[in-house]
């Protein structure tokens, strides 16, 4: 088995990011879309930490901490929006929330 290098982590990050993109594109349920978004955040973070370790430079880890904080804020607002939509529509299927469609 060959040694694990930076490229292995980057490839895993790419796979994770594409799985997240797939989820965002295919899921109808708003919460499922939020779950897939978290996958994409994690892919980016994985790349940042891998670069930080192999370059090596601490700034990547600092940036990953900021990404986690912003992801927490995003998830908070996202869940609040989902609950608000659910209260008004009684479902959270994104392709049926089209009241403002022209």
């Amino acid at each position: 088995m060959s040694a694990i290098g930076l490229n292995h982590f980057l490839a895993l990050g790419a796979v994770l990011f594409c799985l997240g993109t797939y989820g965002v594109l295919t899921r109808r349920n708003a919460i499922a879309v939020l779950l897939s978004l978290e996958l994409m955040f994690n892919a980016v973070n994985l790349n940042l930490v891998a670069f930080a370790r192999f370059m090596p430079n601490l700034d990547g880890v600092v940036l990953a901490v900021f990404v986690i904080a912003v992801a927490a804020a995003e998830a908070t607002v996202g869940v609040a929006l989902v609950l608000s939509i659910y209260r008004n529509f009684r479902h959270i299927d994104l392709d049926q929330v089209d009241t403002m469609k022209g």
């Binding site: 779950l35 978290e38 992801a71 998830a75 869940v79 989902v82 959270i92």
Partner: peptide, 18 residues
């Protein structure tokens, strides 16, 4: 933060709406 807070909050949202 992630597994402990964000994921649990999303699970709460799933259980509240679904």
């Amino acid at each position: 933060v992630y597994a402990g807070a964000i994921a649990i909050m999303l699970l709460f949202a799933i259980m509240l709406t679904h």
